[in-house]
Write a protein that binds this DNA or RNA. Structure first.
Lengths: 360, 360
DNA sequence: CTGAAAGCGCTTACAG
DNA sequence: CTGAAAGCGCTTACAG
């Protein structure tokens, strides 16, 4: 391993001068800079990041704005765990991550959390941009402060210079369409079921539905697609009555596509016979959904590596802050097709982290 | 951040003594050890791994024994890239990774590579145990030397204390069976196609076939499964003639399952009409296979995250050597279901690494 | 424009 | 059983 000291000796300069060249801090004559650069190149020098981190006392604060999760609606738990894991990994190099949680159904709590966040003057921000209008305000403030930000899981259109890490929602819907086609015996219809209550997150759902429909258009199949908007997936009684009515009205429906993470809520209100005869496809490996997959009430789940989304978001920001690596406009994570059989293997990283947590 | 210095001051001892307690090096009176431990606990101290790594000059050597890859048979490229990426990540903390490559069809080259490997006296070894008999010899030597080892991608049965990182082959075959069933219109047969030349690697293939068949047993379908052993996937002429003959003999075959990474070789020798009418399912996202997926000649690929296998292997060994984290018996990575539509999103990590390589 | 010295937090001999 | 000091490789003021 070649060290700054070695370079300095060979160039007959001090270590400080080599350091200046290395980081382009200026204040070095062209002549010596050239000389040093040549040696650097020839000896294939690269900075020891460990020593660098120790000496620099990097003291960056990363702030995360993310919805809180609950027992029944646990989608946001996995991204959170991924963020947590990465936070540990980068603590070594002087990065501290702080969390600000909000209620995903309440835009006031969103803004409130942001107000607390911005007080910390973070070096960078990872946020789930749930409410469009409020998000514009937030982005403006961040831009004014010159703070870099990454959108996690939810994208915002028309923001140049923004970074999105998540799934290609359109394509994931398209794939759901393909799987539905495979699962349905010819001649049967399919129903797309969504909640009419908007959570601000529905941009992804709209795109998934578009992709789903486009698949059927592309293959030129004469399958009828019905659409049912239920009031909410949370209210079992209402959900049950509207679904039952709908299925009675269109008895040819044999497939149900739920483009949100709430397919398990639909399963809950189906009769045994319906569970037998209907093919359900949904999104996201929440614990409730996984149960349905395993007891054969849901055939496929499309999953979006929520744990990895969190993890990668922190890693990207970290590389940006420490190694000034450029950020890409979009980082699409895998579109996982989950079945009863492969769901348990799906997130090895996440499982390893969870078992580590247990032993602490 | 609380430092050793802070603990030492509070306990009225030197930093060296705190360090002894921290690492259980002994030579500390019970009384002072207790005192220090209490303070450590109360102040929630944890070692700064960056400073630790720098001071220790960890100088571990990890040796990797892996098949070389070629243009046409590029399966081993991705695990290699994953290993490379992780090597970079851990270089900071004093881990050096050395590679020893062998010809996967030649057991002599396997042993030769190992002979060179063992001369380096590595702290740990990652190996692809291709040849069973030779592998037993290798394992014996490693055990004698007290060197920890990890099996990558290929498992060896009946070695207690061994560690495997890869896929659950049985289950991946089972899933292939399920997908085949979905893809075949009722009443048609399916053919399982494998090469009779063994590469030592065929244990995984045997298990995949077992899983595939078991799926059909489990669902009690009356689908006929034919089996064709071709001489080699490398010889186009012979392959073409034996496949053609077989398909003529059993015209009811509409599905072909190739439980190795060579499905693209089969596509190559099919006629246009055959490509149209046959449903092919294979393994692994090699460039050639991905091409077939995209031009609709292969319907599904089961993939085993080869890049991640390499990456995780190094990370596990690193945690074992540096943080003395226990190694698990098996680490199963995801069983990915790849289609034309999601294949490009499948390995974000790998893509990011490859684009980094380009810019270097 | 350049160098000498101190320091980041932990570990390693060495001395007692 | 315990402490004082030097060192890991890089960075940061400060002096000139």
């Amino acid at each position: 391993m070649v060290r700054i000291k070695d370079i300095a000796k060979e160039a007959n300069v001090s270590e400080g001068t080599v350091d200046r060249v290395l980081h382009g801090r200026g204040g070095v004559s062209k002549k010596t800079a050239d000389k040093i650069n040549k040696i650097l190149e020839r000896r294939n020098f690269s900075i020891n990041p460990v020593a660098s981190a120790l000496a620099t006392k990097n003291n960056h604060t990363i702030a995360v704005l993310i919805p809180e999760y609950s027992e029944t609606d646990s989608f946001w738990k996995l991204p959170y765990l991924g963020l947590l894991k990465a936070s540990e990994d980068v603590k070594n190099i002087g990065l501290n991550v702080n969390y600000f949680k909000f209620d995903q159904y309440n835009s006031n709590s969103y803004m409130e959390a942001f107000t607390n966040l911005i007080k910390m003057k973070p070096s960078a921000v990872i946020l789930v941009p749930m409410f469009l209008k409020e998000t514009r305000v937030i982005i403006n403030e961040l831009k004014k402060a010159g703070t870099k930000y990454i959108f996690l899981n939810v994208d915002v259109e028309g923001e140049d210079g923004s970074v999105y890490i998540g799934q290609d929602s359109y394509m994931s819907g398209y794939i759901a369409g393909k799987l539905m086609k495979l699962s349905l015996t010819d001649g049967y219809d399919c129903c797309i079921m969504q909640a009419s209550t908007s959570t601000g997150d529905n941009q992804a759902i709209v795109k998934r539905i578009k992709g789903f429909k486009d698949y059927y258009t592309a293959i030129k199949e004469e399958i009828k697609l019905h659409e049912l908007k239920v009031e909410s997936f949370g209210d079992e009684v209402k959900l049950a009555s509207s679904v039952t009515l709908f299925l009675e009205k269109f008895p040819n429906i044999k497939g149900i596509f739920v483009p949100s993470s709430r397919v398990s809520a639909v399963v809950k209100i189906l009769s045994e016979e319906q569970k037998e005869s209907l093919q359900l496809i949904g999104f996201d490996n929440t614990p409730q959904n996984v149960v349905c997959l395993k007891n054969d009430t849901v055939l496929f789940l499309i999953s979006q590596k929520p744990f990895d989304q969190g993890y990668e978001a922190v890693r990207l920001i970290s590389d940006y802050l420490i190694k000034s690596k450029a950020l890409k406009r979009k980082l699409y994570l895998p579109i996982d097709i989950l079945t009863k059989e492969n769901v348990d293997y799906n997130d090895a990283n996440q499982l390893m982290f969870e078992s580590d947590l247990k032993y602490q």
